[in-house]
């Protein structure tokens, strides 16, 4: 029964996809009005103006561009023109670094807050105020103080992935069942040992859920950050093609960003499943 459900779902998915592509194709077929033009003048004009071609590319254009990028993802034609693969590599490296730093800060801090009701209460106002700030609002301040756009982008990733992890870790640690902690206390387990053998394993599913939320946010933010500072990365690629009003390339990049985001999310989802335990 489940098998047939999966199969049916796949068929429905495909149908939706086909309908979407067909509608897209029909909408962009380009039957706009053409105006009679002097041939000399027409030569100086773009296809949108001369043939009434839609400014929006059709699915076939996008497929073609996508194929072109996939065929040669690592080309390097100078500082400002690199292949999609290289751009993605830059973005993933930035996200990876910022995220890793956030993990290193958020989990120890979260454990501390979770274990101490005093700290939890004392730090709460700061966390509540800092948490809802859009990471991009930090950008000008980061650029001004750090004085390096590459590190600023990493800092923005760090700050945006920090809060979900911190809050989830603190919550996870604080809600470990009292009996388990009491058992540990009865057995006279030291603080460090208690953290590593009781608290962290018990809170792991919650912590990993926080990490999963964070990686999603980090990937959302990197695109915007790179559009702002430019240079390299998938966000820069989008900006550069937007500059050329090349919607085809922008759509291609959007697809790729979606796929990479999904992969990152699935990785964390797997890790979450691995540490989940039945109560």
């Amino acid at each position: 029964m489940t098998r047939s459900l999966t199969l049916r779902a796949a068929v429905v998915s495909l149908l939706f996809f086909a309908a979407f592509v067909l509608a897209w194709h029909l909408a962009t077929r380009g039957a706009g009005a053409t105006v009679a033009m002097d041939p000399e003048y027409a030569k100086l004009m773009g296809a949108t103006a001369t043939q009434g071609k839609s400014a929006m590319p059709g699915p076939l254009d996008v497929a073609q561009t996508l194929w072109g990028h996939l065929k040669d993802p690592f080309y390097d034609r100078g500082t400002n023109d690199k292949g999609l693969g290289i751009q993605l590599g830059w973005s993933i490296a930035r996200v990876g670094l910022g995220y890793l730093l956030a993990v290193l800060v958020a989990i120890p801090l979260g454990v501390m807050i979770g274990m101490s009701p005093l700290m939890s209460k004392a730090l709460d106002p700061f966390i509540q105020i800092l948490k809802p700030i859009s990471p991009l609002a930090w950008m000008p301040l980061a650029l001004y103080t750090i004085k390096d756009s590459g590190i600023s982008a990493i800092f923005v990733i760090f700050i945006c992935s920090l809060w979900p992890m911190l809050v989830n870790t603190a919550f996870g640690i604080a809600s470990v069942r009292r009996e388990w902690i009491n058992v540990a206390r009865t057995l006279e387990v030291g603080t460090l040992r208690r953290i590593f053998t009781v608290l962290l394993p018990a809170a792991a599913p919650t912590i990993l859920t926080g990490m999963r939320i964070s990686i999603g946010i980090a990937w959302l933010v990197i695109v915007a950050a790179e559009m702002l500072v430019g240079g390299t990365g998938i966000g820069y690629f989008v900006w550069n093609e937007w500059n050329n009003l090349s919607i085809t390339n922008v759509i291609t990049a959007i697809l790729v960003i979606g796929v990479v985001g999904m992969i990152l999310d699935q990785l964390l989802a797997r890790a979450t499943r691995a540490v989940t335990f039945p109560e």
């Binding site: 400002n80 000008p140 559009m227 430019g230």
Partner: peptide, 20 residues
Amino acid sequence: VEVVKTAGWAVIRDKTLNKE
């Protein structure tokens, strides 16, 4: 010389002030 394309005037100002 490496010529680097930049996203906007404010960014080019900041990056030059930063000595990037």
